[in-house]
Design a binder for these strands. Structure first.
Length: 192
DNA sequence: CTCTGGATTGAC
DNA sequence: TCAATCCAGAGG
């Protein structure tokens, strides 16, 4: 029996949640099958951070970021890819954690089919890649991550000495903030 | 209504 | 190194 992370886990400081998500398992159950992977890389987006979608108030796109924690925030980037985030902090606070990379664990044949790639490292090595491998789409925007088909289960504990903090990938505003976290010895992160 | 840039990926 | 590709958000 897998232990699902409770809503209280997400209703805390976003930077802390981003770090603690490392090692846990993101799982998605669809009609095609179950796919899952260990979270090895994540980024925090908080209030007052210019790179955060919610930094300039609520809009139709970012409204779920202001809702209760433990929900999925999915949006389109560059007109062609999706990024998946988990809403954090108490309701009313527009913050979230972007999941950037997974170590494939379950449903690997299905991931290969969805991605059209064979190599394990080309399945979930980037935010838009993992979204494709797990079969996540804009339809999942707003989904409750506690008790639904899309959820995070307890995985292994990652000690501080195995977590690296760096600046975030691809952001222009707020580029100096050290809000990207990844597992030091993982070979499945999006880049060094 | 028009314009601009983006939390990426994959091909060259 | 750069094109693909298109929508959200901002400004008129």
């Amino acid at each position: 029996m897998k232990h699902i992370l409770p809503r209280e886990f997400y209703a805390r400081d976003t930077v802390l949640v981003a770090k603690e998500l490392l090692g846990h398992v993101l799982l998605h159950e669809t009609p095609e099958g179950v796919t899952a992977g260990r979270i090895v890389e994540a980024e925090a987006y908080i209030q007052g951070d210019p790179a955060c979608h919610a930094s300039r108030g609520m809009t139709p796109r970012n409204r779920v970021m202001f809702g209760p924690p433990g929900h999925a925030y999915v949006y389109i980037i560059y007109g062609m890819h999706f990024c998946f985030n988990i809403v954090t902090a108490p309701e009313g606070v527009g913050e979230a954690v972007l999941i950037r990379a997974l170590e494939p664990l379950e449903g690997i044949p299905l991931m290969r089919e969805r991605r059209g790639k064979e190599r394990l490292k080309e399945l979930c090595r980037g935010p838009a890649m993992l979204v494709q491998s797990l079969g996540i789409s804009k339809e999942n925007n707003g989904d409750d991550m506690v008790g639904g088909k899309l959820t995070v289960c307890q995985g292994e504990f990652i000690g501080r000495d195995r977590i690296i903090a760096t600046t975030r990938v691809g952001v222009t505003r707020g580029a100096e903030l050290p809000f990207r976290f990844y597992i030091k010895d993982s070979s499945y992160i999006s880049r060094k």
